[in-house]
Design a protein around this nucleic acid. Structure first.
Lengths: 147, 147, 147, 147
DNA sequence: GTGGTCTAGACCACG
DNA sequence: GTGGTCTAGACCACC
């Protein structure tokens, strides 16, 4: 698998990038002050249009995860790891509640649901390649941001 | 709350309607032979474009859940409750797997997830208003299909 | 003057559009539920690329001022006029404080500043064409949003 | 706060530096003949790219505020304090007009604006730290220009 | 018809 | 070199 971006997925490419970055920050693979790959570089690595990467970066800046220094590059904001992690958690818990409620409404029993969850836990499929990194070597090896 | 359709949701309106109907059949709120509200009536009740309702009905007919009698209306097919229930189940299990995988990737532990599921099971919130039904009074009180 | 958008301005076109819309809502020229001109229509009227208009609309949606109904169009959100007005006011007051502080630091006297303000008030230049509307006839004459 | 340069600001860093210098001259904190910190020194103090400082100095030289003596450094020109003060004033008045026009367009009354201005005048906040100086100790304590 | 997404490629300001 | 903006035009899903 060359890329962890799936062009044919129903979820938009730029959203996939956003999720990757958010997850990388939440999991500590991207640290505050780290520089992200340049728009052009990442777009080449992912074989997508620079605009698509730029859009993802811009969204993440609006969300407060990244900041941009003109002519310098894009960097991870400080003091957002915790919030980022919590947001991830909350989002997941919310969806978990939703789907369990639905399961219950559909007449599934607690045992049954428990089993499914257990089975799911034993797989090691992670949506964002939790392994050290597939293609998205998100942090630039170079330098930290100058302040 | 007048409607259980969320026009601000990211999931398409017609899909929401399809899910509602499927779930209503699976849970027995809609029984084989029951007539559904007319496209026009439902579209007015949901404040939604008639085309949207029509598309949902058409899809459901293709799926085999409904059938249309010209000039009479749209009815629930017979012998599909089991399949419908299974489809519902599959859909839910799929989503369950998804969200659990994501939770795991985000570093949540099995115990933690189990707790959340348990807590969720103890509530009696159902996504589509398991209560007699909010707006989607899907079965017409009138008549059964003459077939 | 055919258009109130200034292509040669240093402020980005999409920002100009955003300001126009925000101001139109704050001033009541656009009311909750009103439909905005379609991306294509506005882009033709302003003689800019559809993407530029779309970007403005999208930003305003993120800001919570607008919402989108797929296939239907873009509408003004409810319950945001007050907040919108207040945000406008706060932004202006903040900038006012800034510039007055700077003026003071530069050694200007209260009288002098007062005079300038008074003179400025007597002009009727408004950045967003407060007149009934220059080109940006922002509300569509047609219909309100269905819900 | 170590620096009065805001790298997250939307106004370019080099412009911020130019404004700082211009204001320092206008307010007498930098006097004709004073030597400015070297490009290298200032860039380190501000944690900014040397090119950025160099560009600011170059611009200011073009504007006639500074002059460079090869091998000696950059100095404040003579006979420009008045012009500098006037330029500052013009810039401020321009911005004042802008913001007042916007306030008016937003429906604020003359009285209201007057009050805000008055209140702002009573504070002693100055944008560039009118206090002896935060980081931008713009004049080098060493020597005056030999000319 | 509507908006959403993406591509290809241009020009600009900043560092 | 960096990102920001804009254009032109494509295809898609939804209504």
């Amino acid at each position: 698998m060359l890329s962890s971006i799936d062009i044919h997925s129903s979820v938009a490419v730029y959203v996939q990038i956003e999720n990757h970055v958010q997850f990388a920050i939440a999991s500590g693979r991207l640290k505050p002050g780290d520089q992200l790959p340049s728009v052009r570089e990442l777009s080449e690595r992912l074989e997508v249009n620079p605009n698509t990467v730029a859009k993802a970066y811009r969204d993440l800046e609006v969300m407060g995860l990244l900041y941009t220094r003109r002519g310098m590059g894009v960097f991870v904001n400080k003091g957002i790891e915790v919030k980022c992690r919590e947001d991830c958690r909350k989002r997941i818990i919310g969806r978990l509640h939703e789907v369990v409620a639905e399961a219950k409404a559909a007449g599934m029993e607690a045992d049954e649901i428990g089993e499914i969850v257990a089975k799911s836990m034993s797989f090691d499929a992670s949506p964002y390649g939790a392994t050290p990194s597939s293609l998205l070597q998100l942090a630039r090896p170079r330098k930290k941001a100058a302040k």
